[in-house]
């Protein structure tokens, strides 16, 4: 039992990552509200940042500055990759929200079931 707890404690950020990933995906699938779906999608994308950053960050490590007084560096590459991924995430979220605004204008609602009730063929 202790052994499992130790594994959990040593890898707790991975468990958080997986929890965020699954809950994000669950919200996308289970919710009928278009905005809540986007929240879930955003959560799902954000969990990936943690997945990349967890192995890259070394506790006590600094930025990779080439100087004699620093010995321990974090890997900068995953950090840079995630900057790009954050930009992608922001773009996706804003485009999604813009689409929801247009959907609200066209259908008068952001609830999936109400939209399909008004326009059965759209499903």
């Amino acid at each position: 039992m202790m052994q499992y707890l130790e594994v959990f404690a040593a890898h707790y950020n991975y468990f958080i990552t997986i929890f965020l990933m699954i809950s994000g995906l669950f919200i996308v699938i289970a919710r009928g509200n278009l905005i809540k779906k986007l929240v879930g999608l955003s959560l799902f994308q954000t969990s990936v940042y943690l997945l990349y950053l967890t192995p890259a960050k070394i506790l006590g490590g600094t930025a990779p500055i080439y100087d004699g007084s620093y010995k321990l560096y974090s890997n900068p590459l995953p950090h840079v990759l995630m900057l790009t991924a954050i930009v992608v995430g922001v773009a996706t979220l804003s485009l999604g929200l813009a689409l929801v605004v247009r959907i609200k204008e066209a259908y008068g609602t952001v609830e999936e079931d109400e939209i399909f009730a008004k326009d059965p063929e759209a499903e």
Binding site: L25, V28, L34, K37, L41, F44, Q45, V48, T92, L95, G96, L99, V100, R102, I103, A106, Y107, I115, D119, E121, A122
Partner: peptide, 19 residues
């Protein structure tokens, strides 16, 4: 107006795929 819904659906699915 269904184009908007189609785009939204594709946005959700496409983003999940890319992620």
């Amino acid at each position: 107006r269904r184009a908007l819904l189609a785009a939204y659906q594709y946005l959700i699915m496409g983003t999940i795929g890319a992620t």
